[in-house]
Design a protein around this nucleic acid. Sequence first.
DNA 1: GTGTGATATCTTTTT
DNA 2: GATATCACAC
Length: 759
Amino acid sequence: MTEILEQLNDAQRHAVTCTDGPVMVIAGAGSGKTRVLTYRIAVMLRNGIDPFNILALTFTNKAAREMKERITQLVGSSDARNVWMGTFHSIFARILRVEGHLLGYPSNFTIYDTDDSKNVIKSIIKELNLDPKQYTPGIVYNRISSAKSNLTSAEEYNHTAEIVADDNRAQKPMIGEIYTNYEIRCFKAGAMDFDDLLFKMNVLLHNFPEILYKYQNKFKYILVDEYQDTNHAQYLIIKQLAARHENICVVGDDAQSIYSFRGANIQNILNFKNDYPDLKTFKLEQNYRSTQTIVNAANSLIARNKDQIFKQVWTENEPGHPIQVLKAASEIEEGQKVANSIFEIKMNQQQPNSSFAVLYRTNAQSRAIEEALRKLNIPYRIYGGVSFYKRAEIKDLLAYFRLVVNPLDDEAFKRIVNYPARGIGKTTLEKIELAAVQTKLSNMQIALEPARYISGLPSGTVAKLEQFATMIQGLHYQLQKLDAYELAQKISVSSGLMMELMSDKSEEGLSKFQNSEELINAIKEFTEREEIDIPIDSDTEGSKRSLDVFMQDIALMTDADDDKDGNNNKVVLMTIHAAKGLEFPFVYIVGLEENLFPSNMSLTTRAEIEEERRLFYVALTRAEKKVVLSYAETRYRWGNLTANEPSRFLVEIDEQYLEKSLRRVPSEKPGSSPVMKQMPAYMKKPLNTPATSESSMFPPNYVTPVDEIQPGVSVIHERFGKGKVLSIEGSGPNTKATVFFAQVGQKQLLLKFAKLKVV
DNA sequence: GTGTGATATCTTTTT
DNA sequence: GATATCACAC
């Protein structure tokens, strides 16, 4: 115990040992936040607190996994295993499987991912005869999602004047109606979406005092990681659970709040003390991760944000290298320069591949980097992007599993009823859908007795449907008789999926087959595994290795677990969001261009730009030894070449921390004179400056503000040329303009994409 | 009912 | 560039 505490500084030690009562830890980047959390749990366990009474909530599966490993190292696996540790979503899903029957959900409810949800919305839009152009599933989904994150039910949604007014203004008055239908459909299908896991958990605790009481007593000690990223629903669950014992410890850093787009409310951490008058606050300000240069550079950047809790992050580490800025003509060159730089450092300093990370704003940027690394034979691993579980062939197989586990799951039904093709086409599916809505039955129930519910169906179709439905039903009955692996194999064979995959001899088909095989193998491993990831109460069933148990967590998995080939010595490629909480000796942050980072979606309000800036702060502070920044003057974006200015963030870092800065005093900069602003970007390159890795840069050139584009004005579009604005529709980010171009005629353009310049 | 090719639309970020 | 949707031939 003492040896544990000796490894901590004063602030850390206080945060670790103060295990009773409400505690807030404001942890600057690299200040040992995870260490505090894990040691705190270790101390509690050594003090004799029952691991079953500890709840530790994280934001990602990776964070939970890592913390569990570290605790295991400190106190051994028998105790560590029994701590309730996981993401908000997975922990509450677990509880809802046990208690959900109170809300009318089966314990094997399906978890709809975003695609499923959007598909449900799509079919409702169709059913209500709404214009799919006006009601895009994505927008509707976001509206519903943020309503749920704020605990606004469909009914409240329709009765809240402000919300109704908003939707009316956006010319989408039917969203409330869609929301209502969406809820009905999901419930009928025995399905919850991601937001439901938080929403229904709240309902459960709110409506069933005995359940609240049960879990308050179960979770006597609660810890929350990344508290700055919690949304209202999460906040309220924590508050309710902690209300009895008030042994709650939240850890976070307001400067690293990067999820407000998903409903995260930074006020949760700023106002935390209001909920707990006895709150003890500890600030961790000493950075152990990065060089002075990196810490100071990051500080100089984040100082530009207005909304923040005051703290002074500092370090005793060495000064380190200045931050390097690479300039490239194109994304291809950017990739090459990054790869070359990695290669050089790797060779000169004998660094393993795993010392390097390349971070970017959007997943699409990974491609150019990948290609460059491949050319130099540098092994890499991409996190995120099209994850294993999102691949079409995996989703097909999983849809079969889902339907077998939960025959009410209409989305799964629709996905696979005709894959492999069995002559059940669009028309038939529409008839089934219609019948399902009218009879309030599931698609499966209709398919079991098609003739009974749909009149005039060709006898061939009836037979095909019955055959399919009977097969699924037969498999469903074997759920508890076979283990997950046996059943999964049986499903893949009798569905004809394996046959289908094996007959496809193309390279693509082969990889699909291999991926499917890999999923089956994962199930096999699961069947043979002894331990369970999250403890199960003694009053629930034991450790049955059946397929429904396997399926419980699968929807919440985002990345395929650790590397299959066991080789972890690879350069890591990921988005900055995914990199939160991680650290690497050498960090490359690429694509530092206006409209990319900061994203063009986030340029309208100060709050949005501040969040982008926090994101950049997170990126910088991932690095231990050295940061390299890069930008490309041109880059392909959705198919065509675009030119972008270097990111404003480049000039926001105090230049003394940048390598051999060629920057001049701002007013003398050629790029900032009014004349230069009118010139196309490629002409602004100062003469005599070779296009190498020097950090010459210009302040960003902003596109014509949207509100200057009015009917009647003449504009220039980079591809369509000169034109005249005829009319403007919509508002906010979705403003559309109808423009008549001399060369190509009339076009409708979304102003956020079409970069129009007023002539 | 199925399969093909053309074409519109699109992308932040994640559980 | 990639995917979803649509029109059309079989």
